[in-house]
Computed example of a mutant assay.
Amino acid sequence: MTETFPADVTVCPAAPEDRPTVERLWLLFRHDLSESEGTLPGPDGTFRGERVEYALTRPDWAPYLFLKDGRPAGFAFVRGLDGPVRVLNSFFVVRGARRRGVGTRLAQDVLRRHPGAWEIAFQKTNPAAVRFWPHVARSLAGDAWTRELRPVPDRPELPPDVWISLAVTG
């Protein structure tokens, strides 16, 4: 199913043939996060990309590509489709498509595609995420959502992530 928004932004499942586009968007996403995480790319100029591989090949993951006027505008990776809780593993909107409510509509669309319990993690050092994800949670669940800090697995040097939990109906 492809959903079209008034701003000519569509959400569609990413297919294996979309891999080069998703990989390029992944680099932009990781570059954005590097500001708040203080990370640098590897010697070859890329960031770790195993999540792209997982999203495009594992049956319990769902990758989505966002298109604006037919051009790449971002992506989302959902994992945990075979479990009781879905996790929004990665979510990215290119800067040229931000600040017009597009990200909120895209996040709502992706979460509504998989009704049920959800968890969304983000870094408290990322001011845009700190504002954005509670807004999305309220738009979908009113006051029926929670926020908690959790340590980053196998990364004791990093500050804990913020996790939002909510239930989404279709």
Rank of each mutant, 00 (worst) to 15 (best):
M1P: 06
T2D: 00
F5M: 03
F5G: 06
D8C: 07
V9I: 15
P13H: 03
P20H: 07
V22Y: 02
L27S: 10
F29T: 08
D32L: 01
D32Y: 12
L33M: 15
S34L: 09
S36T: 15
S36R: 09
E37Q: 14
G38C: 09
L40S: 14
G45A: 13
R48A: 15
R48S: 13
R48Q: 14
G49C: 11
G49M: 12
P63N: 11
P63G: 11
R71H: 12
A73G: 09
F75M: 08
V85M: 08
S90L: 03
F91W: 07
F92I: 03
F92Y: 14
V93K: 04
A97Q: 05
A97L: 02
R99T: 12
R99Y: 11
G101C: 10
R113I: 01
H114S: 12
P115C: 11
P115A: 08
I120H: 07
A121F: 11
F122S: 00
A129L: 05
F132H: 03
H135C: 04
V136Y: 02
S139C: 07
L140H: 04
L140P: 06
A141M: 07
D143P: 03
W145D: 05
W145Q: 02
T146L: 02
R147M: 10
V152E: 10
P156I: 00
E157T: 11
P159H: 02
P159V: 01
V168E: 04
V168N: 10
